[in-house]
Computed example of a mutant assay.
Amino acid sequence: MSNTNRIFFHDNPYPLGHTLEEFVWSARVDPERGLLFDFHLVTNSYYAEDDSDDNEDVDSDWKSKTVWGNYHNCILSSTEWHSGGIVMGTSENKFDFSKFNHETLITDQLPLGDKFDFQDLAFYIYLLGHDSCCDHKIVLNRNPDNTFEISWTGKIARTYYGDYEFKHSFEANINKVKFDGIYFCYGLSEEENLKILQDCTVDPSIFKIADNKFEVLNY
């Protein structure tokens, strides 16, 4: 079985991981933050490839198939519930999309610090309830056909159960990912969105406007 287009939650009761129903890599403009990358991941049901309950002699909910089955599937996203994401370009540090080939994105590194607000995390996660995730490392490598191979790791705290320690980890591997474009900020005009993009990128001429977003030309 291939390890691509799957996510693995280490030491959970499904060592072969979980297939992905949806994965979107996009960007958006924000009048206060600049140009941001967004990632949105949805799994198929946890039990899609194994609906047995043959491991119920376990020492924690994390290892119980019954518990996982109660929550059905995972959503890991910077857009589903809030406006998170990773800042890629600002007026002071412009983003050069033409040079984006092999990159590693890091956000919300541990330790978070005593004054950190969980509401400010780049990504939210629904896992076993609405939990929390941080310490993200997202590696993107461009293929000759301009798709990307993506490897994404991070840490999880079961905050839905009141446990704020990031003691669990995940790894996702996704192949042949196409960039979905740069979405407008809702409520701003086309001209206002373009102005933000121009302020935050090295060469805004490589973008064209289509369906409330900017597409990348020759990419």
Rank of each mutant, 00 (worst) to 15 (best):
Q198S: 14
K178S: 14
N73C: 06
F214G: 05
F9C: 05
Y219V: 09
N12L: 01
L197C: 01
V24C: 06
V67M: 06
Q109L: 13
D117W: 08
W25E: 05
S98M: 11
G113C: 00
I150H: 05
V216C: 04
F97V: 10
N143Y: 07
V202G: 11
N44S: 07
W81H: 13
T104W: 02
D51M: 04
C185E: 14
N141Q: 14
A48L: 08
N101V: 04
L194R: 15
F184Q: 01
V24H: 06
P111E: 10
N218E: 13
V24I: 15
M1Y: 12
T104H: 03
P31A: 03
S83V: 10
I174A: 04
D57N: 14
K94H: 07
F166G: 09
T153A: 09
S205M: 06
T79Y: 09
I150L: 09
P13A: 00
K178L: 09
L20K: 06
S98W: 00
F170R: 03
I182A: 03
F170D: 07
D51V: 09
N55K: 01
V216F: 02
F95T: 09
F166K: 06
F118D: 15
N93L: 10
H130E: 14
N193L: 02
L194T: 14
F95I: 01
H82R: 13
G154F: 00
R142F: 03
L76W: 12
T153V: 00
Y126G: 05
D50Q: 04
I182C: 07
Y161Q: 15
H82K: 11
V216K: 01
S132T: 11
F148T: 04
N218Q: 07
P204V: 00
L112V: 08
A122P: 12
T104E: 12
W68E: 07
D38Q: 08
H10V: 11
D57S: 10
I7Q: 00
L194M: 05
G34P: 09
I156L: 11
Q198T: 10
K115I: 13
L127G: 03
N212E: 13
S45Q: 13
D53H: 14
I86H: 05
D117L: 01
L35Y: 11
S98T: 14
T4N: 04
I209D: 10
F170E: 07
H136R: 00
A48W: 11
D51Y: 12
E22T: 12
F207M: 03
I138F: 10
H18N: 13
K65C: 06
T153F: 02
S64P: 03
A210F: 06
D211H: 13
L41M: 12
R28W: 10
G154E: 08
F207V: 05
F170P: 07
K94I: 05
V58W: 07
G113A: 06
P144H: 05
D30R: 03
H82Y: 08
H102Y: 14
Y14R: 03
H72A: 08
R33P: 05
T104G: 02
L41W: 06
S26H: 08
E149L: 03
L127Q: 11
S64N: 06
N146L: 06
H136S: 01
V58F: 12
